[in-house]
Amino acid sequence: MSKVKYYYDPDTLSYRKIEPKKSRRYRNIGLFVLGSFLFGLLSLVLLLNTNLINTPAELSLRREVKNYELQFELLNKKMEQIEDVLSNIEERDNNIYRLYFEANPIPEEQRRAGFGGVNRYKSLEGFNNSEMVIATTKRLDIIKKQMAIQSKSLDEITKLAEEKEKLLLAIPAIQPISNKELTRMASGYGWRSDPFTKARKMHWGMDFTAPKGTPIYASGDGKVTRADNNASGYGKHIRIDHGYGYMSLYAHMSAYNVKRGQRVKRGDLIGFVGSTGRSEAPHLHYEVWKDKDRINPINFYYGSLSPQEFENMLKYANQENQSLD
């Protein structure tokens, strides 16, 4: 209830009631309404920026953000597991696979390198969770790069393994005449007495004494480059190119079982023992070449002899006796 105000009128010697002007009344009403509006607006703004009042859309957005945060947390845990597995594969790759196949290890800084140059994550900046999103994206990009490097490395290892397998099959690694059909190992690689001149002469292969017609086997995978009687002293002979710089030669044969240009596998029957060419008796003269140099064949029998058999062969091969060719 508004208070009634009076003033003293000296003319009438009495108190008279003060009547407010209409303009002032309207102004007061206007100020009150404006003040109420501003107060209400300020209160609404404050309430909207607190958790006290949320619209259904805001509540839905908050739940969605919380769900995304949870998904990012789960994603980071999965990335930790992937990083552990990748680390294990990389360790085996460098210390076992690449070492075995004589390939250089991949440097750690190359595997873990980030991405330089232009800012790849600028579009992710300016949001409430930008730091988390950018960190996760960077981590994921590095993992993808690691996986790409590892994939290329395993492709290289696969190729090296295939080449290694081919190399192991190509090396002349077995005795060209079976032990059960061998009379004896007559002469080894080194200086020997020539059967015709009796002079001391370098013997570039190994002589295996065996009856005429005894099977002769390819000592490694390869391609027959010669099967003829056109080389001095060798008589009927076969040469097999094994690749990787290796070549084997089989001389003084009585007959062929292969022809020039034919591909053979280790253990394939290629011909038969004879005494053609410069030969004193039926035997196989066997040579191994590496990069066009003749080397001692005795170092290549790991694929067919037992330790005791190899020891006996080594003893006979080192005797400076007379060769058969």
Rank of each mutant, 00 (worst) to 15 (best):
Q71D: 08
P307E: 09
R25N: 04
N119R: 06
K198L: 12
N129M: 06
A199Y: 03
I270N: 07
Q81C: 00
Y244M: 03
A317C: 01
N312R: 14
E163Y: 00
W204K: 11
S279A: 15
I134P: 13
I177C: 08
Q319S: 05
N312F: 07
L52S: 13
E80I: 05
H203K: 02
N28D: 15
S254A: 12
M79W: 03
P105G: 03
S306C: 04
K22S: 14
I82H: 06
K138R: 14
N257P: 07
P176F: 11
E91A: 10
T197S: 15
R25F: 01
S151C: 02
E165I: 08
L324V: 05
V118P: 02
L86C: 07
I238D: 04
K201Q: 14
I142W: 07
L52Q: 11
N104Y: 13
T12L: 04
L74R: 14
G245I: 01
V118N: 08
K3V: 10
Q146Y: 04
L154E: 09
K290A: 05
M79K: 11
F300S: 05
F72Q: 12
D293I: 12
L61I: 11
G35N: 14
K212Q: 14
L169N: 15
M206G: 11
V288N: 08
Y121S: 05
G235R: 02
G271T: 02
E58H: 04
H203A: 00
A227S: 11
M1K: 07
G235I: 03
E320F: 02
K5I: 12
Y217L: 15
R62M: 06
P215Q: 10
Y121I: 03
A135T: 07
G126K: 09
T12C: 00
F37K: 06
Y7P: 01
N104L: 14
T55V: 06
P107S: 02
D268W: 00
W204C: 03
R278C: 01
F300T: 09
P195H: 14
V273H: 07
E311W: 05
S2K: 11
D207K: 12
Y302K: 12
